[in-house]
Design a protein around this nucleic acid. Sequence first.
DNA 1: CTAATATCAGGACAACTGATATAT
DNA 2: CATATATCAGTTTTCCTGATATTA
Lengths: 150, 150
Amino acid sequence: MSETPDADRTSRAFALAGDLRAVAGKLKRRLREQASPGDLTPSQASVLLRLEKDGPATASYLARAEGMRPQSMGSVVAPLEAAGLVGGAPDPSDGRQTILSLTDTCREWLREGRAARQDWLFRTIEARLSPEEQDELARAVALVARLVDD
Amino acid sequence: MSETPDADRTSRAFALAGDLRAVAGKLKRRLREQASPGDLTPSQASVLLRLEKDGPATASYLARAEGMRPQSMGSVVAPLEAAGLVGGAPDPSDGRQTILSLTDTCREWLREGRAARQDWLFRTIEARLSPEEQDELARAVALVARLVDD
DNA sequence: CTAATATCAGGACAACTGATATAT
DNA sequence: CATATATCAGTTTTCCTGATATTA
């Protein structure tokens, strides 16, 4: 309808950027407010999920994967180690590295907890989005991943 | 293909929750790292966008809209007022409230800056996503908005 | 010697909670 | 008096930068 479809597209992309920023901020705040003491932080949950998916990894690898500094990843992982969910073993072929992996305790915990656990985001996705919408969201997550990766 | 399609859907929803958390975290970190000094924070950009879209509003209204406490919104808005982008006027019919609105300076700044401005997210969306993908992302943003709203 | 990894220390930022003043 | 708004002050969380030790 517009006489200048290009300008139209541009302004829609601009609005999209704003909406995306806003919704990301809201999501983050909501995640924090829903967190009960003893819960994992979003970063920690991400790390466990990644270790489960990709297998053992070093803190530096995890930091790169999450787009975060190695030092920051250190403080994300430390509580997980303290809780016995993640174990560290020195890399036999490279003494600088420590290989992190899920403990059996953690695997067990993930297995039994998954659906029952108090994961607000998971519950809300199941409650509020149809399977088709979940698929749509999954595709969009991949799109955003492309935006934030190098 | 699975014998238990329900369990399958559940585990996909669980992975989706994890991926969404991860990508939201990455996006936030990326936004921060791309911010040049003098840039608006994501919250501030959101506020300007909302004031432009919905017209003048109080800090409390903005806080509710962004899913944030009024006190927090205060510190988001304060720099915008100091920068002359937002002006406050007392509500004539309710002395408790201060009506915030965009200044002419800000409108001018938005108008001229929009495409040229150093908005990393906007530029990246335009550069990396096709118009169709942008539409898909916009739909997904609406889905996430449904998750984070009450 | 240079590069990569890990860790310690201190700092910045954005949100929070609690308390207080004021107006409805 | 109860409710809603705004603001001040202090705290927490999460990530950052900078520095140092160790190993490749």
